[in-house]
């Protein structure tokens, strides 16, 4: 057996062991920890979606929570006001998220990436403030009483039901992202990220693929939003603010930009670290922030990066004080 195949087998074994542990976890865990892990799976999905935009295509999106909000509100409104069954709201939410991805992306992606960051930041705030002011979206108090979903005849009610639902969705998202990454489309994104001019000289239209990355990211965020709505049964504008977007971006960057296992690790860290530091009470976000700054200083490529890789230009400027590496 060669060294590489041994390593491949070892990592396959570790993955299988980890998945088994996650599937058995509800047998031993308290409801509190089930809830924490369900949130972690949730952030895994969101971070994987944002990773298409930031990691694969190298674009900085500071308003990703907007797509998450669009998915959540679509499901929230359709189920409570129009009594549409949950599963039928899913394609509607995906379509609406995709559409908003095009509407925001089409003008913004023609600009330099720094402007994209500003436009997406603005878009995120517009969505949140709109949700806060419309009666349809329940204003500041949001939407409550979202019915618990029935998926293929099985009513999802307990903590454990949602744990499994999100675990499975996170795995499916991960596998889908892996297939995308190693496809013609995934390569086109990487070419553009590495050198946009060289990609264009090979006949790849950078704008078209950036827009596609934006839309794919939006759809994943929208789908996560629908599940968020039915899990929480209540949604409010403050769940979709700028800090939410930043937190998801942190998950992507923390673990290792563009590399899928790193993104999963990052998502777990942003959920588990604040939990682990709970005893420090209001100090915990301070500690969390200090930890992030330390990490960006000592490991700017992330905890589990893909070889040596450049961060997107503006992302690097924003996070490293502009001097890069």
């Amino acid at each position: 057996m060669t060294a590489t195949s041994f390593r491949a087998r070892a990592s396959q074994g570790a993955t299988a062991g980890l998945l088994l542990a996650l599937f058995l976890f509800p047998r031993v865990a308290s409801n509190y920890w089930l809830d924490v892990f369900t949130s972690a799976f949730f952030y895994v999905i969101l971070a994987l979606g944002l990773n298409v935009v930031v990691g694969f295509a190298g674009l900085l999106d500071l308003g990703y929570a907007a797509f998450f909000a669009i998915g959540a509100y679509t499901t929230g409104i359709l189920t409570t006001v129009y009594h549409v069954p949950f599963l039928l709201t899913v394609p509607a939410a995906a379509a609406l998220a995709a559409l908003s991805g095009v509407v925001i992306g089409a003008p913004a992606l023609r600009l330099r990436s720094d402007y994209l960051a500003i436009v997406t930041l603005g878009f995120g705030e517009i969505i949140r403030i709109t949700a806060k002011n419309l009666t349809l979206t329940g204003s500041a108090s949001g939407i409550y009483g979202i019915p618990r979903p029935t998926v293929f005849g099985h009513a999802l009610k307990t903590q454990q039901d949602f744990y499994y639902l999100l675990l499975i969705l996170a795995i499916v998202t991960y596998l889908a992202m892996r297939r995308l990454e190693h496809s013609r489309v995934g390569r086109a994104w990487k070419y553009i990220r590495e050198d946009e001019d060289a990609a264009a000289a090979m006949g790849i239209d950078p704008f078209r693929y950036k827009l596609l990355a934006f839309v794919v990211g939006a759809v994943v965020g929208g789908l996560a939003g629908t599940v968020f709505a039915v899990r929480m049964t209540a949604i409010a504008p403050e769940s979709f603010g700028f800090m939410q977007s930043v937190l998801i971006l942190l998950a992507v960057i923390l673990g290792g930009l563009g590399r899928l296992p790193g993104v999963v690790l990052g998502a777990f860290l942003i959920v588990l670290l604040p939990e682990a530091m709970r005893e420090f009470a209001s100090w915990r976000y301070f500690l969390f922030g200090a930890l992030l700054i330390a990490m960006m200083h000592f490991r700017p490529e992330g905890l589990w990066p893909a070889g040596r890789r450049k961060m997107p230009q503006s992302g690097r400027a924003a996070l490293n004080g502009g001097d890069g590496r």
Binding site: A188, K190, Y191, E194, D195, A199, M202, G203, A306, R308
Partner: peptide, 20 residues
């Protein structure tokens, strides 16, 4: 201007994009 972190083969694959 190569795609530096990608393999030589992946670099050449970029040119196959228009024909796939």
């Amino acid at each position: 201007r190569l795609f530096k972190t990608l393999s030589a083969l992946e670099n050449v694959l970029s040119a196959l994009h228009p024909r796939t």
